[in-house]
Amino acid sequence: MNEDNKLIGQFLAGDIKGFEMLVKKYQNRTLNIVYSLVGNDRDSEDIVQEVFIKAYHGLGGFRGSAQFSTWLYRISVNTTYDFLRKRRHTTVHEDVSKAKAVIDESSELSLSAREKKEEVQKALDSIPFHYRSAVVLKDIEGLGYADIARALGCSIGTVESRIYRARQLLREKLSDPGGR
C-alpha cells in the first residue's frame, strides 16, 4: 500500500492527522497547478481551499482505483474550470489585493526578470482552458500522458494533441521562449 493510501485509511478510520498530512504534501503542487490555470494569487488560494474541502468530503467514497494525486488533480482542474466559468458570468471588479498567504518569490527579482516570468503566465492565460490544463499538468506538475488522461477524463491521444497545440500557441505568444 502506498503512503497516500495509508494516510487516507488513517483519515477514514477517524484520525484527522491523515488528512492533514495529505494537505501538507499536496498543497503546493495543487497551488501551482491552480495558479497556472487561473493566473492570480488570491483566486488560486481560494480554489485550493475549495479543492481540499471537496477532497475531505469525497474521500469517504474513495476506493483507491485511481491514485490519490490524480484524483486530487482532477478535482483541481474541474474546480478551477468551474470557477472561471462562473467568473465569466459575473462582473468581478478585480481588487487585486494580494492573497493573504501565497509566498511570491519573484518579489525579490529585478523588474525585467519579473516581467519575464509574468509573460509566461500571461501567455498561459491567453490560450483555451482545455489546452492550458493539459500542458500545465505536463510541464508544471510533470505528469505522464496516462495520468493526465485520467485527470482530464480524456484519451491519451487527446492529451497528446492538446499539449502539442498548447505549445504551438504558447510559442506564438512568447517573444523569446528560450531566452532568459
Binding site: N28, S44, E45, A101, I103, D104, E105, V120
Partner: peptide
C-alpha cells in the same frame, strides 16, 4: 522555469 508558488 516558471515561478513556483508556496503556502506556509
Amino acid at each position: 522555469a516558471k515561478e513556483r508558488k508556496a503556502l506556509p
